[in-house]
């Protein structure tokens, strides 16, 4: 039992830092950049993706012995798309304000390379409980990167965290101004570039 539980732990913890989907595997960058203007949207996106990849890996792994080889990609896409539609419907029903800001990016989880990638490379060859943990780990690793980028962007670009003003009035009065650049597209690219650099250098 000890053997399989350490394997389980490793499956879960590996993608958090060591094998992080965004910085090391280079997957899932698309949506990572657009929704990181605010911590709130980054959080919802991270949670949605984690749930989708965990459950799609679970379902696909459970079906792995009966999925016909020749339609395997389409089956994976169908499962993933259905889960994403479910997530989108739930968000629009219960988290309306955030859904307006996330707009099309929830739907784009379908094309997020992480979900497809984990289904193809892990879920098809591993038992369901490990597939679930792997999906969970990758989702959390993705979420961690998202939150880090959003933290920097929201703090420097708007002086807020989760919508709450953090930079005190006094600092503004002394001449400090929000770095508007942080709210724009290029900033996200550059921040991730630096994060990757730091992470890779630390690995050496």
């Amino acid at each position: 039992m000890a053997g399989s539980s350490t394997k389980a732990m490793k499956t879960l913890s590996d993608p958090l830092v060591e094998n992080n989907p965004i910085s090391i595997q280079m997957l899932g960058i698309c949506s990572a950049l657009a929704v990181t203007v605010q911590l709130k949207t980054a959080l919802v996106m991270g949670i949605s993706l984690t749930l989708v990849v965990a459950f799609s890996s679970l379902i696909i792994s459970s079906m792995r012995t009966i999925i016909p080889r020749n339609i395997r990609i389409i089956v994976e896409l169908t499962v993933i798309a259905s889960l994403v539609i479910l997530a989108d419907e739930l968000i629009r029903a219960f988290l309306f304000d955030i859904s307006k800001q996330l707009s099309v990016f929830v739907g784009l989880i379908i094309t997020n390379c992480i979900v497809m990638g984990r289904a193809e490379t892990f879920a098809l060859n591993n038992p369901p409980h490990l597939a679930f943990l792997d999906g969970l780990g990758n989702g959390l690793g993705y979420g961690a990167v998202l939150l880090s980028v959003a933290f920097i962007r929201e703090l420097l670009g708007a002086g807020k965290l989760f919508g709450i003003q953090v930079v005190p009035e006094a600092v503004y009065a002394a001449g400090y101004e929000n770095m508007g650049f942080m709210l724009l597209a290029p900033a996200a690219f550059i921040i991730i570039g630096f994060m990757v650099w730091i992470q890779k250098s630390l690995r050496q």
């Binding site: 020749n70 499962v79 539609i85 629009r92």
Partner: peptide, 30 residues
């Protein structure tokens, strides 16, 4: 393959339609 696809489509459609119709009220109200 055909039978598998048919069953999968059926299950997915039922699930999604149930969710969409069930949640529609909330969404429109929002």
């Amino acid at each position: 393959s055909l039978i598998f696809s048919a069953v999968l489509c059926l299950v997915c459609s039922l699930l999604l339609t149930a969710a969409a119709t069930g949640l529609k009220g909330y969404q429109q109200e929002n």
